[in-house]
């Protein structure tokens, strides 16, 4: 019995419990896929499901990774001094926050889905772009003030 388990493990690459758990996840996903296959929009759902992972891994991540690299190169050694506050992070943090807000609240900022928005709320989406820009400006300003204060504090000591 133990020999059989060991042989399974060597061939499969993990204990049988591993396979059992994965079969569980695939069963649920497969059952849902079969169930939704009859829906006329099932293809779109699949595209959005797989597309969400692809968009994150091969679009979003390379974009923010590259942006960070460019920023680091632009600031050079000034960006991350041996001691004292890092200018790099005082640019990174507001930029990341602004980017995140853009992603999360993108429909309002870009005024997507105007007719459904109007039907639901009786309003338009006009203020959101300006608000996002103002929040972004406020974040960078706060970060700049924070940087100046931290530098002043570091030099005083």
């Amino acid at each position: 019995m133990g020999d059989l388990a060991a042989r399974f493990r060597a061939a499969y690459g993990a204990p049988a419990g591993h396979l059992l758990l994965l079969v569980g996840a695939f069963t649920v996903a497969g059952w849902v896929a079969l169930r939704l296959a009859a829906e006329p929009t099932s293809g779109r759902m699949l595209v959005w499901f797989v597309g969400a992972a692809i968009a994150h891994d091969f679009v979003l991540f390379p974009i923010y990774g590259l942006a960070d690299r460019v920023l680091q190169r632009a600031l050079g050694t000034h960006g991350v001094p041996a001691s004292g506050p890092a200018l790099l992070n005082h640019v990174r943090v507001p930029a990341l926050a602004s980017g995140l807000l853009f992603l999360v609240y993108l429909p309002g900022i870009l005024r997507l889905g105007r007719p459904t928005y109007l039907a639901a709320s009786g309003q338009d989406q006009r203020p959101f772009l300006a608000r996002w820009l103002l929040i972004t400006a406020a974040l960078f300003l706060a970060s700049a003030v924070g940087y100046v204060l931290r530098r002043w504090w570091a030099q005083r000591r």
């Binding site: 829906e39 929009t41 099932s42 779109r44 759902m45 959005w48 969400a52 999360v104 609240y105 993108l106 429909p107 309002g108 997507l112 889905g113 459904t116 928005y117 639901a120 709320s121």
Partner: peptide, 16 residues
Amino acid sequence: ATGLLDIQYAYLFGFD
């Protein structure tokens, strides 16, 4: 993604 689009009434995905 679907949740965020729903609460902002932008049904870009074209499915239920």
